[in-house]
Design a protein around this nucleic acid. Structure first.
Lengths: 378, 378
DNA sequence: TGCACTTTCGCAACAGCGTTGCCAAAGTGG
DNA sequence: CCACTTTGGCAACGCTGTTGCGAAAGTGCA
């Protein structure tokens, strides 16, 4: 156990796991092309010898393998290493109000199994837990060691990530009053699932999972840097990635974007306040004024971009999916106008988030995979 | 040289400097009371033996000293260690439009010398550089080794930090068009000063320096955690501290708080946009409507608090200083109302930032001191 | 075909970190 | 005065990345 607060001391084990995760991350990012030991050394700043030791360990453990060699540049050609994707798996579960989606993801982020099911979040804890467990067991059933109730025997399974809408405590894995379902308030979802499944479980907000998924395998412009994922569906929320890690805040409350006030004493919002972006944006969208909805969203996005100086904005959610170009262009225009006024160099890119329907579930799986690769995780 | 991007590999030297900085930070936080080796071990998670080795090194180098012993609890009493403040110094310079302030700060953050001077930022680079250098040399003149042009001989001097208003590039130390003084655009202030002074120089925005100063020695509620410093003077800006480190963004543009739009199509602002907080807040203040100014500020602060889930808000600047209670209470009320609506647990505290006039210059000195103590610095 | 050269990469020895085992030092309490 | 508790240093240790060196595996020219 470390100190009660603040940063902990470092020791050799920490150095080892840090460097191993770093190398593993570079192997993943190299994809099927692979990467040589010397390139790994350059990228990490470690000596080639250190990289050799680390990769030898990873190969012995089955996480990495040699995969051919590059063309020679006058001497011995470099041996190419690549990640062995099937050496590790994680399940990602997206728990929505009326639907459940579970995916099985390999180390490289590829989805190798998927299940969908109807769900009623109001049906009570027992029913929902049962449905989640059934979906998780179903999605891993082809893995070696699967079959029993307990999934601890599935050697390659790192754990399961669960993403859902309501406010919750990521650190403790406890739900707060999920919007519209007050009976979930205080429910220890993480521990309840971990006990039933026999593997580690992590819970997080859906927007955070989506942002993490994008940080790992998102659009090229923003992957792994700092960006905001804005989700416009039945509500409006945001997931923030700062320096490659999801920013959750002390109480997992960060990303409260929809109730940002952009019109003092404006029209009332469900939350009890007035002039929230969510009310203005969704109201305009409901009236069919998509350009106005996009402009309003752009103003709020501009506030965010200015405050955090992020590298990009990604848009997603059902409402955006209905007219992606209108929203992307509308938001980009507001941001560009703002940048011009401030004399900033390059415009902040605005893109539509890829992998729409599976974004959250894949990101939920990354809640367990990302730490293996050294991505920031708080 | 490390890799071209991303995180670097860790080695033994990094472990050493990390743990040393950690211990040094705890020694500083312990103040004159001091702290025992075993307490340091508990706080860091290191073994007592490791702490003994580290503190022995620090004592040999003059950074720490034994200072009495605690009462026995039945065995050998713990020996108390404390920081030797005069073992290290840094100069902090606050460069404002019409004034220059330089302070000399010891390791514990105490100000041991101070100079003020009139200044005209528009008088040209040569005049301003000369004034800054003169102030720095003057403020360190009583340190052993001082006296010459070059300050490299002042053994305990870590360097000088310079904080100023305009947009700038913290990483490269280059100014952008300082508001109202376009001739500074592109000026490499850091390198120019470092060459003249012979010691390392760091430049940053004034709000960032202020936030860093508060993170190190600020109000108890927020010190070292996550908070926002809102500066309301001739303009409105913010400095963000996230997890103990200043968040600057990739282009040192973070903290653009004043031009957050909180009233769609509201009154025009100097920046060319409409409905910015700065225009609304300062407009209300100019009309004498302080309560309204505070409410407007509170709405914008609420947007920020919701987005980042921070632990507290600190207010500063000349306008706030004119009626501190009105602003603190007004902002707190808006935040409390918002928290009630969302059913959040505790209210976000709102306080007046201490050390008003010297806040920025002290923070500027911390730009060099903070890294010694392991505070996050990007 | 052979030789010189370049480049990769592993083995072995090494330095330096925190950790462990052990014991002297320095108190308290009966 | 002695038993006990607690602190904290010394020495040996295990582990990390690093350094020195040489084998392996290519290219290119004679």
């Amino acid at each position: 156990m470390t100190g009660d607060k603040g940063v902990a001391g470092a020791n050799l084990g920490l150095v080892r796991s840090h460097n191993t995760a770093l190398v593993l991350g570079l192997l993943r990012d190299a994809g099927t092309e692979g990467i040589s030991r010397l390139e790994l050394a350059e990228r990490t700043g470690l000596t080639p010898q250190a990289v050799s030791k680390i990769t030898a360990r990873l190969r012995a453990e089955g996480f990495a393998a040699e995969a051919g060699r590059r063309a020679s540049t006058g001497g011995k050609p470099r041996t190419v290493l690549r990640l062995v994707p099937e050496a590790g798996h994680a399940v990602g579960v997206h728990l929505d109000r009326d639907e459940l989606r579970a995916v099985l993801v390999e180390l490289d982020g590829a989805v190798v199994a998927e299940r969908r099911a109807e769900l009623d979040l109001g049906a009570g804890a027992e029913a929902v837990l049962g449905a989640v467990c059934a979906a998780v067991r179903d999605v891993v059933r082809d893995l070696p060691g699967a079959g029993g109730e307990d999934l601890a025997g599935v050697g390659s399974l790192v754990g399961a990530g669960v993403a859902l809408p309501g406010p919750l405590d990521h650190a403790r894995g406890v739900l707060h009053r999920v919007t519209g379902f007050p009976e979930w308030d205080g429910f220890p979802l993480r521990d309840a699932l971990a006990r039933r499944l026999g593997v580690p479980v992590v819970v997080d907000k859906d927007t955070n999972a989506a942002a993490l998924g994008l940080a790992v395998g998102g659009a090229q412009e923003v992957a792994g840097r700092s960006f905001a994922y804005l989700h416009l569906g039945t509500g409006l929320g945001a997931g923030l990635v700062i320096d490659g890690g999801v920013h959750r805040g002390a109480r997992t409350g960060a990303g409260e974007f929809g109730h940002q006030v952009i019109q003092l004493d404006g029209p009332p919002c469900e939350c009890g306040n007035r002039g929230c972006v969510e009310a203005l944006c969704l109201g305009a969208a409901a009236r069919g004024e998509l350009a106005e909805a996009a402009r309003v969203l752009g103003v709020a996005a501009g506030n965010l971009v200015g405050l955090l100086d992020i590298d990009g904005v990604l848009l997603g959610g059902r409402t955006v999916a209905g007219a992606p170009d209108v929203y992307a262009r509308g938001v980009a225009e507001v941001l560009a106008a703002r940048a011009r006024r401030e004399g900033a160099g390059e415009d902040v890119p605005v893109r539509i988030a890829p992998r729409a329907e599976r974004l959250v579930s894949e990101g939920a799986a990354q809640l367990l995979l990302a730490p293996l690769f050294g991505r920031g995780d708080a």
